[in-house]
Structures are given as structure tokens and as C-alpha cells.
Amino acid sequence: MLADQLRVSLQLLVFESAGKAVAAVEAGQADVGFFARDPDRAALIAFTAPYVLIEGWYLVREGSRFSKLEDVDTTGTRLTVGKGSAYDLFLTRQIQHATIERAPTSPTVVETFLETHADVAAGVRQQLEKDAAALAGLRLLPERFMVIEQAMGVARSHGYAAEVHLSDFVERVKANGFIAEALGKHAVAGVTVAPARKS
């Protein structure tokens, strides 16, 4: 849709992790990207307001001593995250006592968590719920640890006009119902359309 409005051709580049997608936009290999807003990424990338909100949750084994969020950030706890993901960046800033261990990508978090016998896996709620349903003996803690703001981003080297145009584009597709319609069409559950940008 953005390419059509700009009257340019479209080439889609797919990366196995959010960190690699961010790096591609920073390096000029891609003009715009879809990833989570994070202050650690904002030096070289200008983000739009979010278009959807995704929840970050913790996953543990059934017999685990962990029952609430506060139990996780304790000395001796091993926490598995997806390398370079939004929740990796967030937890790296927030976690003070637990040890963060990184899986190669977000989809491999639970696999790595099980293989390394870590205590807790962190990830996007939908992925963790899917893995918990497929594998016996796992459960999510009862509340989220963060809200992930999924947005579009453009390299700051493209200039302020590009930043404004992309931000306005995202606000239009939220307001006209396109985002909500796309989520329904593709049966994407567990995410919400982000509110309109504050003036």
C-alpha cells in the first residue's frame, strides 16, 4: 500500500530476526521496516507511532517455583530471550539480578530454554502459548511483563520529510480500519490496534 501510494516498485525482504531487520534498515539495505519501537534502536531509525500492541510474557515449567513477575528477577534465575528482540532490549535494561541467556531468534526461545534447562523463557504471548500447547508441562505466568509497540521505521538518513510521511501513513491505515481488517483477515489473535497518535 505504501509503495502504491508512492508510485514505486516494491521488494519485500524477510529476515529471521527483528535485529537483522533493524540492521538492514540502518545499513540502507531496506528503506522501511516493521519492528518494535525501542530507544536503543532510535539513534539511526525514526519510528512511527505503533500500529499494533503485542504483549511480552514469561513461560515456565509446570512445577516451577515461579508464580508472579517479581519471582523472575532473582539471583540465580536463568532467563532465555530471543537475541536482539524488543523484549531482549527491554529486559537487558530492566533485569538486575537474573541472568539473561540469548536464543538465536525469537521462534527458537522455547526450544533453547528446554535444551539448556533454563528457568524462564520470555517472548511474545502468541508464540509462547503455541509452544505451551504443543509441548506438555509448560505454563505462562499470569500477567505480561511488557507491551511491545510494533511500528514502522525509516533510517534517519532519509530525512525528516520521510519520517513525517511514514508516520502519517501509519495513522491513516489505523484510522481507516485497514489494520483491524488485516488482523481479522489473517486470524491474528492476542494483539490490539494501537490508539491514534497523540497530537
Rank of each mutant, 00 (worst) to 15 (best):
L2H: 07
L2G: 04
A3M: 02
A3Q: 02
L6G: 05
L6H: 06
L6M: 12
S9I: 07
Q11S: 15
L12K: 10
L13H: 11
L13Y: 09
V14H: 12
E16P: 14
S17Q: 03
S17M: 01
A18R: 09
A18W: 07
A21Y: 02
V22S: 15
V22A: 12
E26Y: 00
D31K: 08
G33N: 06
A36T: 15
A36W: 12
R37Q: 15
D38H: 15
D38K: 01
D40I: 11
D40W: 09
D40S: 14
D40G: 14
R41E: 10
R41M: 10
R41H: 08
A43N: 13
L44I: 09
I45T: 04
A46V: 05
F47R: 01
T48Y: 07
V52F: 09
V52A: 02
W57Y: 13
W57H: 15
Y58A: 11
Y58T: 07
L59C: 08
L59W: 00
V60Y: 03
G63I: 04
S64P: 08
S67I: 10
S67P: 00
S67C: 05
L69N: 13
D71T: 09
D73T: 12
T74I: 13
G76F: 12
R78D: 12
L79Q: 06
V81S: 06
G82T: 03
K83G: 01
G84Y: 08
G84I: 08
A86E: 07
A86P: 02
F90Y: 14
T92P: 01
R93F: 00
R93V: 00
I95N: 03
I95G: 01
T99Y: 05
T99E: 14
T99W: 07
I100D: 01
I100K: 11
P104V: 02
P107I: 09
V109I: 10
V109C: 04
V110D: 12
E111F: 04
E111C: 01
T112D: 13
T112K: 09
F113Q: 03
T116Y: 05
D119V: 07
V120N: 02
V120Y: 00
A122V: 02
G123N: 00
G123K: 00
R125E: 02
Q126P: 01
Q127T: 14
Q127S: 12
K130F: 11
D131Y: 06
L135I: 11
L140K: 09
P142M: 01
R144L: 14
R144M: 13
V147Q: 13
V147Y: 04
I148T: 08
E149G: 10
Q150P: 05
A151T: 10
G153H: 04
G153D: 09
R156H: 06
R156K: 14
R156F: 06
G159D: 01
G159I: 00
Y160R: 14
Y160K: 13
A161P: 02
A161G: 06
A162P: 00
E163T: 12
L166Y: 11
F169T: 08
K174R: 14
K174C: 04
K174I: 09
A175W: 07
A175V: 07
F178L: 15
A180T: 07
E181S: 14
A182M: 15
A182C: 08
K185C: 09
H186L: 10
H186G: 00
H186E: 04
A187I: 10
V193N: 00
A194I: 05
A196D: 05
A196N: 06
R197K: 13
K198I: 09
